[in-house]
Amino acid sequence: MDAGLQVRDLHVRYTDGTWALRGVDLDIGAGASVAVVGESGSGKTSLLKALLGLLPDGTEITGRATFAGHDLLAATPPERRRLLGSVVGYVGQDPYASNNPLLNVGRNVAESWRAKGLRVGAERIADTLQRLAIPEPRRTMQRHPHQWSGGMLQRGSIAAATALAPGLLLADEPTSALDAELADRCLDDLLSTAPTALVVTHDLRLAARHVDMIAVCYAGRLVEVGRRDALLDRPQHPYTRALLAALPVRGGGLPRPLPGTPPDLRAPDSGCAFAARCDCSVPACRSRVPSLVDGVACDAIAS
């Protein structure tokens, strides 16, 4: 598994005392794609930012994360800058917000090279865009981001992120700004360009159509990790079951929203974070933090 992404006991604590991640373990085999799903505030974006080294100054980060032999967390700033773009690629949420509005799309894409001090010609940029099936790239790349359509621009961003063929692609809600049909296509494009991919999303159903594995994030921990079909057909953790129950199903009546609110992430760790909202919790849940065993972190269903 040396070629894939390995995350071990990753903790992230912001300067205001919020624990965004409280011990994340995750293995992605080379060539696999994983969707990290969860409510907002569950720590999925912090996971991406920690791997990219984009957390604000002063944030406490402990644990290990390696990809293909590169240590992502222990890297010095210059080492990290060498890894970013060429080993680890990143696609953002809103394509309009994640392109510099003053530069035309071609120059935004060119930043993939120029950020690393490399030179790049128009030909190369056009080829990169061409790979994502952007029509007439030589002409359209002269236009500015606000003149592009959202779906096209997000494909441009994917082209830019994968320009140097990074082995690992990290994507933060890459489709939330797009409508359903475009979202499917975009995610398809994204996964087809990336050998190993970690996609953060709150759209479980969309993820289900594209990725190999799903990891469910709750209150800074992964509560269930498994192969897509197994996880969707036989969800084990009560939170995963609640997430799936909250999805509307044709002919299935009204979806059942999850009651209660996520826990206070500043409070010290005591017991299962989901226990307060869980309908099958046992007294032990409130005193011991469950660890991830066989892809599930729940003491209630194990006992």
Partner: peptide, 22 residues
């Protein structure tokens, strides 16, 4: 604080480049 500067940083640009060029 805008996503486009984070994006450039995520492509390996130095802080100085993010600040001065973007």
């Amino acid at each position: 604080s805008q996503p486009y500067t984070a994006m450039v940083a995520a492509r390996g640009a130095s802080r100085t480049r993010v600040l001065v060029r973007h």
